[in-house]
Structure formats: structure tokens, C-alpha cells
Amino acid sequence: MTEGNFVDYVKMHVTSGKGGQGSTHLHREKYLAKGGPDGGDGGRGGHVILRGNSNLWTLIHLKFKRHIRAGHGGNGSSGRSTGADGEDMYVEVPLGTVVRDTETNEVLFEITKDGEEKIVAQGGKGGRGNWHFKSSTNQTPRYAQPGIPMEQKDITLELKLLADVGLVGFPNAGKSTLLSVITSAKPKIADYEFTTLKPNLGIVKHRDFQSFIMADIPGIIEGAAEGKGLGYYFLRHIERNSILLFLIPADAPDIKKQYDILLDELRRYNPEMLDKDRFIAISKSDMLDDELQAELKVELDNNLPIPYVFISSVAQQGLMELKDLLWQALNN
């Protein structure tokens, strides 16, 4: 998936169908001048329904669909015939979609399962025909109920990626390079910060035809939880990841300090993120000779509270060890 095709935020206006009018028909046929009321009920208005689709990974198909309208219910007719129900409008969304009310910012619901259906705008109920209102004192009612009006709503769709492993790191830490090496994804790679402006997904192939999904999000900077940089906008994409893999380059001035800053940004954004399994990958370790790596290993063993592994995406070092570590954690 190219960067321009990844859409994870869409606003739209949804309108359900209005209910059909109940009929005021009075029964008439040959030799029966006054047969009494037989007006049928109006049909139900169509719903606007969101449905989960596991084959979708982005909201790009909804990017230019700003208005979604369901069909109106048909009016009742003679012979107590009920009007036709309005056509429901189904909107397919990827798994991990959060639906909010645009005006209040309230979360209405989330779609997390394939085929899961949620009504976002309820169709109006059809009005009752006049035969419902006949009585001993009113044998020929000439009125019926109108249908319930349609429902209109402004909604916002936000996609939270469903991935097994989420990559966390500062800009230019090598996240996109790692994703491009161990998956078939082709993220944009360059030697400057914020090369990645959109999240990327890749499928990591492991031993014995096994696989798991890895997500690369734009780099986090200090203050991201307050909206600095790009972090605040994309931090939601790692809320659903089972494992967080912190990527810190070997030439960082203080690896432990960088890890603490990243962890603190996640905590300030959502404290529940700290409940996830966490690992550290020391990237660009091909710059270290054996002696430097041994010294750094002693320092990290004393300071880092979680497992770590030295890797180099360019030199293809430590990648199988990293995949084994992640696969074991996912299956535990």
C-alpha cells in the first residue's frame, strides 16, 4: 500500500430513510358501499449500517463519499397492505474503525470483527394505517399516522490499525528500513526526519510458514502526547498492538533515556499502553565493532528493564533472533 492510499480519518453526513405514511383508505367493492377502514401501515425507513470487512485496510474508499443516504419507506395502501421498507445502506469499513459523533466527539461504537454490523442512523418507523383506529364509536376513521422522520447525523470514522507488533521510535530511527527488510512492504525511506507521514503495515514471514503483522507509524518526538510533531495524530494506531517494539539506534547518546522518553509519551497519551509486552531493538548495530557492542551490552544489562536485541536492517544482522523473540511473545 502506497503512502498516498492510506486514509485513516474520514468525516461524513449520514441520513436514514423516513418511515412511510399510513393509509386512510376505506374498503370499497361492488355491492359493498361501506366496507370500513382497511388502510395499511407505512414501511420502515432504511437504516445506515456500518459493517466490518477484514479485506479492507484503509478508509480510502470513503474519502470522497461525504453523504450517505438510505431509502425511504413506502406508504401503506388498501387491503391492509404494508408499504415497502426503505433500502438499507451498508458502509463497509476496515476492522479497528472507531465511530464518533462529530459534534460531541462521543465514541458511538467500534467495529473489530469481520461481518459485524452496527446501525449508525436508525430508519424511521412506518405510520399505522387507519384500520388500527377503528372502534365501536368510530367505525370509519379517516386519519392515519405519518411515518417517523429520518435521522441525520455527522460522524467521524477513525481507523486504529490492528497489528500484532507496533514499532515505536524517534524519527529516523530505522523503523521503515526494518519494515522493508523483514516484510514485503515498501515504505518511503530517506535520510531525514519524518520521512514516514502515514502508517505502514507489513506481514512478517516466520519459520514454518507462520506470519504476523507489523505496523510502522511516524516517529514520536518529546511532547507528542500534547500534539507536538505528528505523534498525537498517529499514536492511536499502536493502541491495538499486542507488542510494542521500541527501535533505538546504536549511535543514540543515551539509549536508556530515549526509551524512558518514548515510554513516558505513551503513558501520557494512554496509561493502558504500559500493560503491553515491550521489547527493544538496538538498530544500526553494524556501526559497532565487537568490543563496543560488548561494552554497550554490559551497560544495557544494568539499565534496561526489558529484553533487547542488537539488529542491523542493512547488514541483515539479528533479524531472525528478533523475529523469534516476537513470535514467542505473541504465542505466550
Rank of each mutant, 00 (worst) to 15 (best):
residue 242 S to P: 00
residue 93 V to T: 04
residue 266 L to N: 07
residue 199 P to N: 11
residue 325 L to D: 03
residue 139 Q to L: 15
residue 304 L to N: 05
residue 207 R to K: 15
residue 132 H to E: 07
residue 130 N to Y: 08
residue 26 L to Y: 05
residue 263 L to N: 11
residue 102 T to G: 03
residue 311 I to G: 09
residue 53 N to C: 13
residue 131 W to E: 06
residue 209 F to N: 13
residue 328 Q to S: 14
residue 198 K to I: 10
residue 23 S to V: 05
residue 325 L to T: 12
residue 292 L to N: 11
residue 65 K to W: 12
residue 225 A to F: 11
residue 258 Q to C: 02
residue 93 V to W: 05
residue 173 A to Y: 00
residue 136 S to N: 12
residue 19 G to E: 03
residue 92 E to Y: 05
residue 161 L to D: 05
residue 233 Y to I: 08
residue 52 G to Q: 05
residue 299 E to A: 02
residue 318 G to F: 02
residue 29 E to Y: 09
residue 300 L to N: 07
residue 173 A to I: 01
residue 309 V to W: 01
residue 32 L to H: 11
residue 215 A to W: 00
residue 283 S to D: 01
residue 212 F to K: 06
residue 247 L to N: 02
residue 2 T to Y: 13
residue 127 G to I: 09
residue 297 K to I: 00
residue 250 A to W: 00
residue 73 G to D: 04
residue 297 K to L: 02
residue 174 G to L: 01
residue 193 E to S: 14
residue 170 F to I: 03
residue 319 L to F: 08
residue 256 K to C: 06
residue 9 Y to D: 15
residue 174 G to C: 03
residue 227 G to D: 13
residue 314 V to W: 07
residue 150 M to F: 13
residue 182 I to W: 08
residue 7 V to Y: 02
residue 94 P to K: 04
residue 260 D to H: 09
residue 277 D to G: 04
residue 174 G to D: 02
residue 237 H to Q: 12
residue 196 T to M: 12
residue 117 E to Y: 06
residue 173 A to M: 04
residue 216 D to M: 03
residue 247 L to R: 00
residue 36 G to Q: 13
residue 201 L to T: 14
